[in-house]
Nucleic acid binder design. Sequence first.
RNA 1: GGCUCUAUCGUCUAACGGUUAGGACGAAUCCUUCUCAAGGAUUAAAUCGCGGUUCGAUUCCGCGUAGAGUCACCA
Length: 478
Amino acid sequence: MSRVKTRFAPSPTGYLHIGGFRTALYNYLFAKQNGGSFVLRIEDTDQTREVKGAVEALISTLQKIGLNWDEGPFADKTFKMTEKGQNGPYFQSKRAKIYREYAQKLVSSNKAYFCTCSAERLEQLRKEQEAKKLPPKYDGLCRENTQKPIGKFVIRLKVPTSGEVVFNDSIRGEIKISVNEIDDQVLIKSDGFPTYHLANVVDDHLMGITHVIRGEEWLPSTPKHILLYQGFGWNLPVFAHLPLLLNKDRSKLSKRQGDVATEDYLNKGYLPEAIINYVALLGWHPKDDRELFGLKQLVKEFDLKRVQKAGAIFDVEKLNWFNCEYLKKKSNKELAILAKRFLPRADEATLQKIVKVEKERINYLEEICERSQYFFNLPNYKQELLVFKKSDKETTLKSLKLILENLNKLREGKWKVKHLHKILEQMVKGNNLANGDVFWPARVAVSGLAKSPSPEEIMEVLGKTESLKRIQKAISVI
RNA sequence: GGCUCUAUCGUCUAACGGUUAGGACGAAUCCUUCUCAAGGAUUAAAUCGCGGUUCGAUUCCGCGUAGAGUCACCA
């Protein structure tokens, strides 16, 4: 058995679809656990669909999330964005000549032919077939055409007229399709570029791909690919068709029903490790009940045999949970760096303090921006909010005055949660008050909110001056 | 419509043909508590239907049903 080699072969549509990311991840995991390599190949043979900046976006997302591809003999070394040790992805658009040569070989061996049918004729044909309720298929008019025509032409695959294609999918088992279901697929388009099917098969063979791990949407066209392998006389790779990632309504995961771009999640401040962990578990599960896995552990534990057959709904709620778990593992310092872009106004020290109180209350880092506004500007609040539900106005006023008086005695250097808490606690005991009489108004005074972290946490972030100012204000409005 | 794939709690999923069908997310309740969050405890929640094979079927087979994917000079 030759060395394992897998590939991720996206077409550059502008962003990395989360389903595409899972495909890439599984390819990566499988290659690495077998000591093999993982290559990236950009399938950009459709000149009409070129999206500028798409390749760079794709690569930058892959790099941000930490999936690195290996170099290969066909790597394009001129590609700028690559880093040390990575010789860049393959670009099919730069290999058009290779595909044409291979298509010609197929024609020479009578496995393909030149077709000069016009778009109009094909359109006409389709309409007739539809009217007769027949499946739309090329009628084979040019089937015997082995001479290269003058002018525009395409090259089509000459699908056998009888028999069936049988292959084994390592996730789904044996799959059988009659050749009658397979159309004489265009291999080389009239612009000289290959279609997906040809380029894919030629590259997978030339690059020595041993395992083709891709989305289930490719299952119906796999027989065409097998016919191509057979036409060339090449050995088949192992095929594994992954179940689809689904919207809530069980249709194929798409835009319009939430974020499907991996970078959207990255931009919102979901951690790469959380995304990797969650996505890995969408369609795969280890033998036991463990759920928290880092990339390295996944490489060790992943098992293609345990990949699910049915599609999986992408549920943000569970992603949130994973993200919270990984957020908790980060130090305040690390989080402060990551949160910087969401709170550009705050300095390093403040950021660390904010992160400390908010990190357990957010699902993803972007939320910290909205959530922590009260640190910078005291929101307007109704004076009634200052009074705890089990308290009254007089007690609250008395309490606030006591808070101001007692906290004022605390030196700036000791303005920490621990000491602040102790003072407030002693105030409660010493004055025969309830916790709600003291902590609630203190909290509302400094946050202006009905729901917030505890008063002492907030005060530590605000500092003595600002905290006392806010308490003073509460006394004046009540 | 043809072809192909798929089917366990709301969601992700576990279960050599033998389990009180397990875990996680989410939900609910309670505890803790100044509120929120976190934490702790508890609860509800599933084998698509019908046949067959078998002592025994979530598991194997058939038929149905439902859902999805795919039928391009897009990938």
